[in-house]
Design a binder for these strands. Structure first.
Lengths: 201, 201
DNA sequence: AACTATATATTATGATTATAATATTAAATG
DNA sequence: CATTTAATATTATAATCATAATATATAGTT
């Protein structure tokens, strides 16, 4: 049947949003086109009217998921756009138990980075670009006296801790340890922002 | 045919080692039993004489891979078993370009943590146990004056940076940035070990 | 030398995979 | 009101998945 104008775009968006959720929850490989389309209320044959391949959907879904999170962080930064409070807001948002417990709505970098690293260059480029702007968001909260290089270095360290500790908190089977990991990540990330750089290198 | 004594154990070990390499290189989902057995010079039917299911092989392969790395780190610690030099040796080993470029022989935590987090509790427990001893290796290099709690907190922060930055370095498409990420991770990890804890919480 | 036990191979099963060609149906257009 | 067209459904394909039952062949045992 022929549908109203804009219907296709709307359907495409529904597929992308469904994929963005399921990819984060189950992984890129674990999600099949047929099941995904069924989830979106469609049959699998129509998929290729929207995307050239599953890989193209992966890129669209990564962009969708990472864009959602970026917007959420931007909102969190509205109250305190820079300074230690701004950084603390970002880190607390990231290392919340609620974020740990709902990967399907959370940061796609944390759930998919290793899997994406095995994909085509073009797919990695999508995640790379979003990662760069995430690092910029963090760097923007650091003291204005710091050089751009120093900000970049610290932003990488800070997000490294956030990413690594969130993943650890998700995998460990001891929930008390999981909570301590989140707390340690928080303390560490904030420490990095204002620690005096080590002189031992 | 009936084979010599110990032949089965030897075959099993070959399957596990092949799996440990391919899982790290391609991901848990991407590796199929048939291809894996072919790689080990066997046909796929015999697989279930060795493992009750693919999930059981995953556990054995995780243990194999994580044990290899733990041994390598223990050797690196033989020269300087504690102190800043010991920590630096561990971090340099982890954040080397060579490690970034050979995930199939590298840390299974970095390649598989997110995927394992979606698996059964028993599989997560395997990775959890090895992660705990990795954190202990790091903690053992920290100053004796620190309390056990403080050592744990810092070890989590240090490994968080190592894990997060290695994954970032693997996914980004800009190799110059990738190198800067490794370098930043190194500096940050060493800074955490001796930074004065932030007072702003 | 005959027999048994066992490690692996062969073959089968039924589900699921990504992708593609064709069919259907109703909105838009004349 | 007839025709065109676009969005989705139906159906097909060939590969691959994990798992399982059975067959084969030979080392070890008697």
């Amino acid at each position: 049947m022929r549908f109203e104008k804009g219907h296709k775009e709307q359907t495409r968006q529904r597929i992308v949003e469904t994929a963005a959720r399921r990819f984060r929850k189950e992984g890129l490989e674990a999600v099949g086109i047929a099941g995904l389309m069924a989830d979106a209320g469609l049959t699998h044959g129509g998929f290729y009217a929207h995307f050239a391949s599953k890989e193209h959907l992966v890129r669209a879904a990564l962009n969708e998921a990472l864009d959602q999170n970026q917007t959420r962080r931007a909102k969190a930064l509205e109250q305190a756009p820079s300074g230690p409070e701004a950084l603390e807001a970002l880190v607390r948002l990231y290392l919340r138990p609620a974020h740990r417990d709902t990967p399907e709505r959370g940061c796609a970098v944390a759930t998919l980075i290793a899997e994406v690293a095995r994909h085509e260059q073009e797919t990695r480029a999508v995640l790379s670009a979003r990662l760069a702007s995430l690092l910029n968001q963090i760097a923007s909260t650091l003291p204005a006296e710091m050089t751009a290089d120093e900000k970049e270095r610290r932003a990488i360290g800070i997000f490294g801790v956030m990413l690594g500790t969130l993943q650890m908190a998700r995998v460990v089977t001891d929930m008390a340890l999981s909570d301590r990991i989140l707390e340690s990540g928080l303390v560490t990330a904030l420490t990095i922002s204002n620690a005096v750089a080590s002189q031992q290198l």
